[in-house]
Design a protein around this nucleic acid. Sequence first.
DNA 1: GGTCTCACG
DNA 2: GACGTACGTGAGACCG
Length: 934
Amino acid sequence: MTFGKGSHLHLIDGSAFIFRAYHALPPLTRKSDGLPVGAVSGFCNMLYKYIEDASGHDAPTHAAVIFDHSGKTFRNDLYPAYKANRPPAPEDLVPQFPLTREATRAFNVACIEIQGFEADDVIGTLAHQARDAGGRVTIISSDKDLMQLVGDGVEMLDPMKNKRIDREGVEEKFGVGPERVVDVQALAGDSVDNVPGAPGIGLKTAALLINEFGDLDSLLARAEEIKQPKRRETLIDKAEQIRISRELVKLVCDMELDFTLDSLEVQEPDADRLLDFLSKMEFRTIVKRVSDKFGVAPPAIPEAPSTASAPDAPATPESKPFDTAAYEKVSTMGALERWIDAIYARGYVAVDTETTGLDEMVADLVGVSLCVEPGVACYIPVGHTVGEDDLFGGSNLVDGQLAKNMVLDALKPVLEDPSILKIGQNMKYDAKIFARNGIKVAPCDDTMLMSYALHAGINGHGMDTLSERYLNHTPIPTKELLGSGKSAITFDKVEMTKAVAYAAEDADVTLRLWQMFKPQLHAERVTTVYETLERPLSPVLARMEMAGVLVDRDVLSRMSNAFAQKMAGLEDEIHQLAGENFNVGSPKQLGEILFDKMSLPGGKKGKTGAYATGADILEDLAAEGHELPARVLDWRQLSKLKSTYTDALQTFINAETGRVHTSYLQTGAVTGRLSSSDPNLQNIPVRSEEGRRIREAFIAPKGRKLISLDYSQIELRILAHVANIDSLKQAFRDGLDIHAMTASEMFGVPIEGMDPMVRRQAKAINFGVIYGISGFGLARNLRIPRAEAQGFIDRYFERFPGIKQYMDDTVEFAKDHKYVQTLFGRKIHTPEIGAKGPQAGFAKRQAINAPIQGSAADIIRRAMIRMPEAIKDLPATMLLQVHDELIFEVDEDACDAVIEVVKDVMESAAAPAVHLDVPIEVDAGIGDTWAEAH
DNA sequence: GGTCTCACG
DNA sequence: GACGTACGTGAGACCG
C-alpha cells in the first residue's frame, strides 16, 4: 500500500521508551543467568499492546521504532559540550539496548537507527515526509524536544500517561505554538542535554519574549528594546550562544533516508520468531499471551534457576564433572593447529602458563594450557627438563615436546588477535611471561579481577579459593606437585602426566569460573567497576612492574654497614643496662627483663601470656626517664631498617636490569587499594629522618630524574564531598589549612597564630573521622584521657553534624545491604556488619572507612589507567604507586612538561563519572632520588 | 604457622 | 554496664 491520504504512521521513540521503562519498572533479571531484562520486558509489553490495538479504529497503517545510534552526532561538532553532562547509561541497562533492537525485529516492526543523527531527527524527517504525503502521524514519546513537530496532522502520544498532545498541549507546555518551540528552547536552554541557552532565562521568560517579539531572530535583532537591563545585556552578549542553542534543539527534518515510507507498512509478526525471542528472554506472561493470540502451544521455559544466579550455590550435579585424565597433551603441530582452530571457532579461550618460578621477571616458560569449554582442555609442554642444567646454561629437554619458539609463533596471532578474548586467572602474571617472549596478550578477561569486583570482603580471589567455593571442586594442590620447603622442585621437573593434569585443570577451572562470573557482573551491578577500574588497570600495572625502579646497591650496602655498627653499640649498652645478655630482638625476653627483672610499671600481658612491648609502651617508659626502653626503641628502628630495607632490598635487584621490580596485587585490599610485594615498595620509610635516607637509594639513571606527584588530603576532600559538608568544601575551595580550619571551628580560635598543639589535635580528629572515630582510639593516639577525647569527638560532631549523619547513614546502608559502595560503584561487602559484641564496632568502622578509602583508590586507579595514553609522546615512564602518590622516571629536560600533563590527569581523574564538589589538588616534586622528589 | 612488631598511606 | 577498639596493607624475627 502506498503511503498517502488515509495512511497513519506511528513513530515510536525507542530510546526514550527504554529509559522510561528502565526507571519506571522494578529491576528484573533473567532467571537462568541474571541478565538484566527489565527494560526489555517493558518494551515488549508496550509493543505487544501496540499490536493488539493495531486492529482498533485508529490503527496505524505504517510504523517504525527509532533508536538513537551510539556515538557522536553533528551536534557534538557544533557544540562539543552537547549532552556532555549526561551520566553514562546505568550498567544494567547497557546490555538491554541491543536486546530491544532484537525485540523490535522479532515483533516484525521496522527498526531504525542512523549514525550521526539522533532518533529525534529521524522522527522529524519521517513525520515531515508523511505529512507532506497527506497522511497522519502519531509520535509515541513524551520527549518535549519532539513537540516542535506537532501540528498539521502530527500528534504526540505519551505512552506512559496515555495522553495525546496536540497543538494546545504544546502551547500549554511551552507558552507558544509548535513552530516557535525551537525559539523558546534556544533561550531557555536545557540542563539535561547541556544546551546553554541564555543564562538566567527560563521557559516562562522565554515564551514571554518570543510572544512579544514574534520570533527569535526579531528578538535578537531588536534586543536593545528590552527594558530589563540584565535581560537585555544577556541577549546581546550571548546572541551567538543562543543561536547555537537553536541549532542544537532544532530537529533535522530533511535527512536523506535510504528507505521509503511504504517500507514501514505494518505487518503481522511471525509467531515462531517472536515466541522464540520471548522465551529466550524468559518472559512467561507475554509468551503465554502471544501463544494464545496466535493459537499455538507456548514454548517451554526452564523453570529452575541455574547456578549462575546464585553466587553461593555449589555446582549442580548436572554440570560437567572434572576429569583430569581427559585433558590432552599437545606434542605435534597438527594437534596445536586443531586447538587454534577450536579457539577461532569459539572466539575465546582460557589460557594459563606454567613457569620455572614465581618471579615473572626471571621465570622461564615451561608450558601453556588452553581450555575452550568446560572439560575440554590441553597442555602444551615446551620447557620440561631432566637432570641438572649443563655448564652452558642449556638443559636437557624431555622428549615429546614441541619447540618453544614454534609454539609461541603459532600462538602469537591468537593471543594478539583483537577478536579473540583471552581468559586468565591473574592474567597479569601470564601476560608478563608472554610479554618477555614478545607477545602482547589482548584483549583479556581475568577471573581474579571479576571475583574482586563481585566478592571483595566476602572471600579471597585465588584460584583454589574460587574453585572450591564456586565450582565445588578442589584443584590439584601445587604442593602435591612441587613439594614444599627445601625439597621443592620447579615446574619443569614435574612428571609429564601430572603436569598435564595440573596445568590443563587450571585452564578448565578458569573457564568455568569465567562462565559463572560473567553474567553475575551484570546481576550484581559491577560491570562498570570491572570494565573501567579493574580490567584496564592490569596491563598498566604489568608495564610498571616490568619497567622497575633503579636502585643503587652501594648506597644500601653502606647504610647496612652503618646500621650494623650502631646496633652493635646499642646492644652492648642495652645488655649493660639490663645487667645480662639477652636477645634484644625477642619481645618475650625483653618483656621479662623489663617487667620481671627490673619491675618497671605498665607490664601488661596479652592473650598469649607474653608482656606487650610495642613502641607505645616503650615510649611511655622512656618518657619516664628509663634508659633501657629508650635504647631498645633506637635499636628496633635500626633493626627494622636494616633487615627489611637495606638488606632485603638488595636481594631484589634484578641481575639483568639492575632494577627492582615490585609486584602489585590488584585484589590485595578489600577497599580497592593496591598492595605491593616482593618487595613491598609501598612502605619504604619516610616518617623518620634516618629511615627517609633509604629513599636516596632509589635513583634515576643518568640524564633522567624521578618525579613524584601526590594527592593532597584526598580522603578528607572525599569526606567533605560525600558527607556534603559546606564549611569543609568551602575551606578546600579557599585553599585553607584544613586541620587548622577544623581546630578553629571546634575550639573557636583564629587560624592565624594557632598553637601547633591545637592543630595537631584537630589533625588527629580528622584522621580519626576517616577511620570511624572512637573515644578510646583518639585518646590513645593523642595520649589524653578518654573522657577528654570523647569531649573532642562530641564537639566535632556538634560542629559538623553532617559527618555524624553520613556515618550513621553509611552504617545503616551497610546493615540493609551487607555492603557499602565507593563513589564509582565499587562494592565492599561487610558480612560482619550485623555481628554482636566487639565485632560490631569493628565492622562499623570498616563500613565507614571503606567508601572513603575506596573512592580515593578508585580515583588514582582512573588516573593510572589514563596515564599511558596521556604521556605516550613524552619521555616518561610510570614506575610506582603508593596509594596517593605516583612516581615517574623522566628525561631531565622534560620534567616540567610531564608534571603538567600528569597533574592534570590526576586532578581530573574523577570526571566525568563523578563530579566532585571539592577541588582535587596534586603536589609535585623533582629529584635525582626518591628522597629528593617526594 | 601463629604472633608480635613496625614500615607505609 | 561491659565489652574491645582507630582504617588499609606486607615483611621480618621469634618461638613452639
